[in-house]
Design a protein around this nucleic acid. Structure first.
Ligand SMILES: [Zn+2]
Ligand SMILES: [Zn+2]
Ligand SMILES: [Zn+2]
Ligand SMILES: [Zn+2]
Lengths: 140, 140
DNA sequence: ACTGATACTGAGACTAATTCTCATTTAGTG
DNA sequence: CACTAAATGAGAATTAGTCTCAGTATCAGT
């Protein structure tokens, strides 16, 4: 019961609520992110969105990040992408093949529980990122 | 019962075993990493090691990584550093303050168990990285 | 210790990713 | 419609990281 089609609308509303305007270029970035279920890099977005400037793509991502609508994910070998954050809190983590760079999403309830049980005085925890590294079948 | 003073020697031995030579510049990179208990960025190493070229720093890091002597760690906001890998397998993960960028190491046994229980067909898992994000006391 | 083969090195050119600047356009308000 | 400020795109600037290459240093063999 996810709401992939709604994240775009939800984000547009949050953008407005934050006092920002509804511009076409930014909305196109939002729509592209809404369509993807896993990480996309800033340059991929830039390349895919003809007519939208690089600067705009980076700015949009930054704003969405600030509003907690998008999260940055480490994709190994110095690359990183962004993916939408479902308001439900439902999310996944990533396994990356250190040989070919393939990235695969995964979910694990026990892992989530272990993380939720971590408390650190002097820190208000808000999110987490887990990346498993290994070698995929093709690279073994 | 850690062996912080020995990692440097251990690494030097592995370097030799891999057919590489014992050069002073590379050894200086190793020694610097041996001294640190948490992540250092490549540029920090470069800045701290007068007389050692940037290229050499990056090359040394890459070789140490390939030999499994050093691991890359994500430090939030597009920065990443490297830290030595204890032969014992003993390691820590990181909490980063999304406001000021402060990074703090932590260890959690339950988390490690949860991670070790994860199996993914089509993937031979070898290592993992966990980063908790939040706000430190100073930034709240 | 001398020698040769070759790993290693530093300087700086180069590339790629991201940020910044600024003149122009556009959304939203009245 | 008119005004104001947010937003945009082109491209310059900055940063991080990689590559090239001519000279240097390591090490095995003598
Ligand atoms: Zn993903
Ligand atoms: Zn999680
Ligand atoms: Zn650390
Ligand atoms: Zn661990």
């Amino acid at each position: 019961m996810n709401e992939p089609a709604n994240w775009s609308e939800h984000s547009a509303r949050q953008i407005t609520a934050a006092g920002l305007r509804r511009s076409t270029p930014r909305q196109r970035v939002i729509d592209l992110l809404a369509d993807r279920d896993c990480a996309v890099t800033a340059l991929e977005i830039d390349a895919e969105l003809e007519g939208v400037g690089r600067a705009t793509v980076y700015r949009a991502i930054e704003q969405l990040e600030d509003l907690g609508l998008v999260r940055k994910v480490d994709l190994g070998s110095s690359a990183h992408g962004y993916e939408k954050i479902e308001p439900s809190g439902h999310h996944h983590h990533h396994i990356v093949c250190d040989d070919c760079g393939k990235v695969e999403p995964f979910e694990d309830e026990a892992l989530e529980e272990a993380i939720h049980d971590i408390h650190r005085k002097g820190f208000r925890l808000e999110s987490h990122e887990v990346t498993l590294h290994g070698h995929c079948a093709d690279c073994s």
